[in-house]
Design a binder for these strands. Structure first.
Lengths: 217, 217
DNA sequence: ATGCAGATCGGGAAATTTGCCCGAGGGAAT
DNA sequence: ATTCCCTCGGGCAAATTTCCCGATCTGCAT
């Protein structure tokens, strides 16, 4: 609550990879009106740091262990509806982008973008605007044209969770236990997922999950 | 071919994300005996840059489009068997680590490591030693205790072919047709593959296939 | 020659799972 | 209040998996 607003942009960096974070910090601090005031490597830490430092912009990688990135965004926005959060992700899946904005992010830049794009996006977000890198905009534009429901939109939350665990290699029994469901229910979800997405094979489901950023590798 | 060896360590940075690359560059150049002499964002470019600059160490992210990271390592090593390549990856899957070393890498550090670990690894590799971060070593140690025969060695040619098509998303009927086999035979192979590899789920088979380079994506 | 090992190909039968339909309960929206 | 959708599971025939088996064919050592 100092004179943060009057001069420069204060930034909270959230990424679970120390080296990566260190790298960003150096890139960002090269701009002399940027100040990285805190770092965090998980959702809970990010929330604490936000409360403690009230940064102008949060730059966050949402692919953190536990898929907690979206949670972190929601938590921060719940505390401060004016919080500016710029998501900085490896992927540019339409579903992920929409989920991020839906959770309250103000911007979305992929790690494939030029540093200048990230820097510009941070300035835009700090100004209260929305920002996204060119590739993200292109992906969103394309999929808004196609009537393809992104395959995942037609799935409920439970279905998505089960799809992810399926793709992760869990057996139906394990999933049933993880989620406190009967094996039968998991079987039914499995069937429904295949029916809704049009996939015939489990292998195709895995590929779909990977494409949608639900599973890695 | 200048006085590169006498003073400091010259480095070629390979990563397909410009921002990430920029970040590493700053982290590395903070060490005053490190010099990043070139960057590349794909396998072909990496090879060209290696030829042009003959760096002491190549720091490479192998998760690049086209799964070409291992190719790049092999190409570079084919040209210069003394090339020092340090892989810098998001993941620490045992299979990936072994593939990297098998292709000729001298080190493997995950992005989850502290910057100091990366820097130390670079020095080790430059000295001609092998290096890996603690988490990678742990993963390797654990799985070396298991008598896993690399999973694919125990599979016959036909089994591997069927595994690949399975992982590619083909149905058993399609595979049977492709290979002029009865559906029954394909089912039997499917069963045998699962039995031999110890995988319980089709999704696990897909992951195995991807890890072993049988399938991409 | 002979035998052994192993890869390839498929049949058979029991056990399990899938495919598909159905109903019930809860919550959100109208 | 009513409708809609998500969640959760039962039921049952059809399909698949699991595991066993035998038949070729090849290479390779005896």
């Amino acid at each position: 609550m100092t004179t943060a607003k009057t001069r420069g942009i204060s930034i909270l960096l959230v990424d679970d990879h120390p080296v990566v974070r260190q790298g960003y910090r150096r890139v960002l601090e090269h701009q002399d009106d940027f100040r990285v005031v805190a770092e965090a490597d998980n959702a809970a830490e990010a929330y604490r740091a936000f409360k403690a430092h009230a940064p102008n912009v949060v730059v966050m990688d949402i692919s953190m262990p536990g898929a907690s990135g979206l949670e972190a965004i929601r938590n921060i926005r719940a505390r401060d509806a004016d919080a500016r959060i710029l998501v900085f992700s490896m992927h540019s899946e339409a579903a992920q982008v929409k989920a991020a904005f839906g959770a309250g992010a103000s911007g979305f830049v992929t790690k494939g973008s030029e540093p200048a794009e990230l820097i510009q996006a941070i300035r835009s977000v700090a100004r209260g605007e929305h920002a996204m890198s060119g590739d993200v905009a292109r992906v969103l534009a394309l999929q808004s044209l196609a009537p393809t429901k992104s395959a995942l939109d037609q799935l409920g939350e439970r279905e998505i969770e089960i799809l992810r665990q399926l793709a992760a290699g869990s057996t139906k029994e394990q999933i049933a236990e993880n989620l406190n469901l009967s094996t039968k229910t998991v079987q039914n979800y499995h069937y429904l997922i295949k029916a809704k997405t049009g996939m015939r094979t489990d292998a195709q489901l895995v590929r779909l999950a990977v494409e949608c950023g639900l599973a890695n590798l």
